[in-house]
Each structure stands twice: as structure tokens, then as C-alpha cells.
């Protein structure tokens, strides 16, 4: 009873560039620091969400990616979130550990879990839906496809948002895609790999 699934939209944020559905949306100066890069996207996209400035960089990446992917509106509030990355919250873990030496910072500590990003996204888009966060060495299409199919089978679910949002030592790698019952691209390993790492350019 497996329903056929499609990739509706995708976003890649990598190497100072943002792509939406494989089209270059924004390119910034490669010399920008990560925080300046994130702020530049925020400004360029004309976003108004003061909570953004309170987030750690991992959540900022997820937030910005989803704003661009969904054009600021996830209409289906049952949209499930299936996210993964390689380095968990290690970037913020290290920042918190540095604060620990003198005054442990609660506002850093709270971000020392990767799924906090899912909390931020759920708050922003008012999603009281299914959430899961996985860790894998590298982008694992099989994991996303497997778990997404499961969600579609179990639930009267119509949309899943898959996200690979990784950040460590200022190296970031973001790939997001909306999976639905209709859309342009078949949801399979080959297509996911192509969208995640285009070989042309």
C-alpha cells in the first residue's frame, strides 16, 4: 500500500551559495564569516523574526533553509520533520564548553542538542507534528527515504520535510527537501543524491 512519493522542492546552502530547486538564488562574498553570511541571507530574504538572533548557527541554518524552501509558509501543519546531520550540535557544544570554564551559559547550553532546531522550526511554523533527528557519518539518502516512507505509511500524512543540516568548524552543509504525494521529481536515492550533490556546474 506504499504510495508514490515525490520531491516537491529542494534547497542547498553550501560554499556561500544558496540554491532553490537547483537554481542559484544567492551568492555572497566567500570571505564572509559564518555569522555574517547567515545575517546576509536573513537581510536579503527580508525576514522579520527577532528570535533568529537568539539561535545558534545550526538552528539559524535550518531556519533560513526552511524559510527559503517553504517561501515562509508551511501550510500543512501536519508536515513531519525528518532531520539528520553528522556532527550533532558539536559547534555549540564547544562554545558552551568554553563558557563552562568561567560562567556556564544557559543560552548556549540549551542549543547543545541537535533537535533544538526542530523545536525552532516547529515554533516558527506552528507544527505540532512528528519530529525525529538522526546522526549519520554523511548524507544518507537511504535513511531519509526509509523513514519518510514509514511516516507516509503509518499516518494520514501528506508532507514530510527532510533536512540535512550540518555544521562544524564553520563548515556548513544544508540540504532540505519537501516530500509530498505529487511533485516534479521522483523520491528515490538517485534523485536525492543528484539534488544533494549536483555534478554539473
Amino acid at each position: 500500500m506504499s504510495r508514490k512519493l515525490y520531491i516537491k522542492n529542494s534547497v542547498v546552502i553550501r560554499d556561500s551559495k544558496i540554491f532553490r530547486n537547483e537554481e542559484l538564488l544567492l551568492k555572497t562574498n566567500e570571505g564572509l564569516s559564518l555569522s555574517s553570511f547567515l545575517k546576509a541571507i536573513y537581510k536579503e530574504q527580508n525576514l522579520k523574526y527577532p528570535k533568529f538572533f537568539k539561535m545558534d548557527s545550526l538552528s539559524k541554518l535550518g531556519y533560513l533553509g526552511v524559510e527559503i524552501l517553504s517561501k515562509g509558509n508551511i501550510a500543512d501543519k501536519q508536515t513531519a520533520l525528518v532531520f539528520a546531520n553528522s556532527t550533532s550540535s558539536l559547534e555549540t557544544d564547544e562554545a558552551y564548553a568554553a563558557s563552562m570554564k568561567k560562567f556556564p551559559s544557559p543560552s548556549l547550553f540549551v542549543y547543545t542538542l541537535p533537535n533544538i532546531m526542530l523545536g525552532e522550526l516547529s515554533i516558527r511554523h506552528e507544527l505540532r507534528s512528528e519530529n525525529s533527528f538522526f546522526i549519520s557519518e554523511s548524507f544518507d539518502p537511504e535513511l531519509f527515504i526509509g523513514y519518510t516512507k514509514i511516516l507516509f505509511q503509518q499516518e494520514k500524512i501528506e508532507n514530510v520535510l527532510c533536512g540535512w543540516v550540518d555544521l562544524h568548524n564553520n563548515d556548513y552543509d544544508v540540504f532540505l527537501c519537501q516530500i509530498a504525494l505529487s511533485g516534479g521529481t521522483d523520491f528515490n536515492e538517485e534523485e536525492l543524491k543528484k539534488l544533494y550533490l549536483p555534478t554539473h556546474e
Binding site: 568561567k102 560562567f103 556556564p104 551559559s105 544557559p106 543560552s107 540549551v110
Partner: peptide, 13 residues
């Protein structure tokens, strides 16, 4: 609430 906790740190620091 997290800001409140951060203000407590600020008082100490």
C-alpha cells in the same frame, strides 16, 4: 525563561 537564566549569569559575572 532562558534570558532570565542568562541575566542571573550576568549578575554573577
Amino acid at each position: 525563561s532562558i534570558d532570565a537564566l542568562e541575566l542571573i549569569v550576568l549578575l554573577e559575572k
